[in-house]
Computed example of a mutant assay.
Amino acid sequence: MRIREFVARDWDQVWPIVEQVVRERETFTYDPALTAETGYDLWVEAAPGRTVVAVDDDGRVLGTAKMSTNRPGPGSHVATASFMVAADARGHGVGTALCRDALAWARRKGYAGMQFNAVVESNRAAVDLYQRAGFAVVGTVPGAFRHPTLGRVGLHIMYQEF
């Protein structure tokens, strides 16, 4: 597996991943009625942000990440990132590789840290991955996410200082 910059022709493989993750309504706060067109604008970051794909040896997209400045102005020294992995590629290190890539990008760009604004607390795989990568839960908004089977669960704010 390798991680490379997203190019427009990747969208045909990235959109099904985004669509599935969003429609599952278990890990992202995006509107489940998201379309491919609005999804592209939401997922693909304009420079100086960055969008990448993790691909296997055959060029199949296994996952994707986007990263950018978390907030403008006085908050512009903190980065943020989001990750999505194809259902059949989960549990094989794709998310970990994407997270490491995002952290390396943020450090190269001179950010002071990285913040995740809305990690669904019931998404144990992501929470555990981020904690292994050095992130800490710095706060939780109780009941801020409507999970389809668990009801209202919290959204963690996670942070790692560089």
Score class of each variant (00 low, 15 high):
residue 73 G to E: 10
residue 85 V to Y: 00
residue 54 A to W: 02
residue 79 A to Y: 06
residue 108 R to F: 14
residue 78 V to T: 14
residue 90 R to P: 10
residue 103 L to I: 14
residue 91 G to I: 02
residue 88 D to H: 14
residue 101 D to A: 05
residue 80 T to L: 07
residue 100 R to A: 12
residue 77 H to Q: 13
residue 68 S to C: 11
residue 84 M to K: 07
residue 69 T to V: 11
residue 61 V to F: 08
residue 61 V to P: 13
residue 99 C to N: 08
residue 108 R to S: 15
residue 55 V to F: 05
residue 87 A to G: 13
residue 73 G to Y: 15
residue 70 N to T: 05
residue 85 V to I: 06
residue 64 T to H: 08
residue 61 V to N: 10
residue 99 C to A: 13
residue 109 K to R: 15
residue 97 A to D: 02
residue 103 L to C: 10
residue 109 K to L: 05
residue 56 D to V: 08
residue 97 A to Q: 01
residue 90 R to G: 12
residue 107 R to C: 09
residue 108 R to K: 06
residue 87 A to L: 12
residue 61 V to G: 08
residue 88 D to L: 08
residue 60 R to A: 09
residue 96 T to W: 02
residue 96 T to F: 02
residue 76 S to D: 15
residue 92 H to R: 15
residue 87 A to W: 12
residue 100 R to C: 11
residue 92 H to Y: 02
residue 92 H to Q: 14
residue 98 L to W: 03
residue 103 L to T: 07
residue 60 R to Q: 13
residue 60 R to V: 08
residue 103 L to G: 05
residue 74 P to Y: 12
residue 108 R to A: 15
residue 76 S to H: 12
residue 79 A to P: 05
residue 74 P to W: 10
residue 63 G to M: 03
residue 65 A to N: 02
residue 54 A to V: 00
residue 101 D to F: 12
residue 106 A to Y: 01
residue 106 A to P: 01
residue 80 T to E: 09
residue 70 N to S: 13
residue 93 G to N: 01
residue 72 P to S: 10
residue 72 P to M: 07
residue 94 V to N: 00
residue 103 L to N: 02
residue 82 S to D: 09
residue 102 A to Q: 06
residue 77 H to Y: 14
residue 77 H to I: 12
residue 60 R to H: 07
residue 100 R to E: 14
residue 94 V to S: 04
residue 93 G to L: 03
residue 103 L to M: 14
residue 96 T to G: 07
residue 69 T to P: 13
residue 81 A to H: 11
residue 67 M to L: 13
residue 81 A to F: 14
residue 87 A to C: 11
residue 102 A to H: 07
residue 55 V to H: 01
residue 63 G to A: 09
residue 75 G to T: 10
residue 91 G to Y: 05
residue 87 A to Q: 15
residue 75 G to L: 13
residue 90 R to W: 14
residue 75 G to R: 13
residue 73 G to P: 00
residue 67 M to I: 00
residue 56 D to I: 06
residue 88 D to C: 04
residue 107 R to N: 04
residue 101 D to Q: 05
residue 85 V to P: 03
residue 80 T to I: 06
residue 93 G to D: 02
residue 106 A to K: 03
residue 103 L to F: 03
residue 56 D to M: 10
residue 109 K to P: 05
residue 60 R to I: 11
residue 76 S to G: 15
residue 70 N to Y: 15
residue 65 A to I: 02
residue 84 M to D: 01
residue 57 D to A: 12
residue 86 A to R: 09
residue 94 V to L: 02
residue 79 A to R: 04
residue 72 P to L: 03
residue 55 V to L: 01
residue 61 V to A: 07
residue 85 V to A: 00
residue 71 R to H: 11
residue 88 D to E: 13
